[in-house]
């Protein structure tokens, strides 16, 4: 039994020990007046604000707006990344013709696109969704290409030997083999998408978590700002956990993932 207790401790308690201690220290210092509450309110104050904003539905409104934008941008960006990745992997000529374009576009920070896209598409939803899809596109693209390239040639040879046509080889061999890598791309992509939406909303928006933070700054509401920041962090974590669960389900055969073997 003690072994099991240690296991439970390692798994569930260990990750919360350090944050718990830090919050405790923070609360203590705030009460002693070491930390100025206009700059960094105590955790208890932030929690109270959080509670109020949840009850009033204000937080949920902003969160919903941001999530919907991320969903649209992520769906668009990752599908385009997947399609482009397939095309580039399928034909060296496509790859060669896109080499310079991708080389120049890829290093551009996502935030640099925001003013440009606002000019082109206006200040409403379209520009934000586009920013997010650009952010999602690159990691998905690179990981799709990497995944397809690392398909075991011996597996492809077996499929050829068994008389499979190219589309069947793609469905039965190449895509399943690339799936772990594609998933890595999607996970990185959604992380960037979530950061991009906040960035875009900080610059120009009338709804969303980024807007909530920017507006609270103008009103010097440090507690509201921090509620927004914390909400971004927790939502990002939840999205990642969700994606990990889907990954485990889908890649049941992957020995590296499940730790079996």
């Amino acid at each position: 039994m003690p072994k099991k207790t240690i296991k439970i401790f390692d798994r569930f308690l260990l990750p919360v020990v350090l944050p718990g201690l830090l919050i405790f220290l923070w609360e203590y210092l705030a009460h002693k007046g070491v930390i100025r509450s206009t700059i960094l309110p105590a955790p208890s104050v932030i929690s109270a604000t959080f509670y109020d904003m949840v009850v009033s539905g204000e937080l949920w409104g902003h969160l919903k707006t941001s999530l919907w934008r991320v969903f649209q941008g992520f769906a668009l960006g990752s599908s385009l990344g997947l399609i482009a990745g397939l095309l580039i992997s399928a034909s060296p000529r496509v790859e060669r013709s896109l080499l310079l374009v991708t080389g120049i576009l890829r290093p551009i920070p996502i935030i640099a696109w925001v003013p440009v896209l606002i000019l082109w598409m206006g200040i409403d939803e379209a520009s934000k969704v586009t920013v997010i899809s650009i952010g999602t596109f690159w990691p998905v693209l690179l990981n799709v290409i990497h995944g397809i390239r690392s398909t075991d040639r011996k597996h492809i040879e077996v499929a050829t030997m068994l008389g499979k046509n190219p589309s069947s080889i793609l469905i039965h061999v190449i895509l399943p083999s690339a799936l772990p890598s594609i998933f890595t791309g999607l996970r990185v992509g959604i992380g960037i998408a979530w950061m991009s939406v906040i960035g875009a909303e900080l610059i120009a928006a009338s709804q969303g978590l980024g807007y909530l933070i920017a507006y609270a700054r103008e009103l010097s509401q440090a507690d509201v700002m921090l509620v927004g920041v914390a909400c971004i962090g927790f939502t990002g974590l939840l999205i990642d956990i969700l994606l990990q669960c889907i990954e485990k389900r889908l890649l049941y055969w992957n020995v590296n993932l499940s730790g079996k073997g």
């Binding site: 597996h155 040879e157 499929a159 008389g163 020995v255």
Partner: peptide, 30 residues
């Protein structure tokens, strides 16, 4: 290659995402 010749390699070369039954079925000509 043709279905009238079958080949077994030193490594089993099974598709890791397919079950035993699915791997065997993969060899059935269309």
């Amino acid at each position: 290659p043709s279905a009238e010749r079958g080949m077994v390699f030193q490594e089993s070369r099974l598709l890791p995402w397919k079950t035993v039954a699915e791997n065997i079925a993969f060899g059935i000509p269309k």
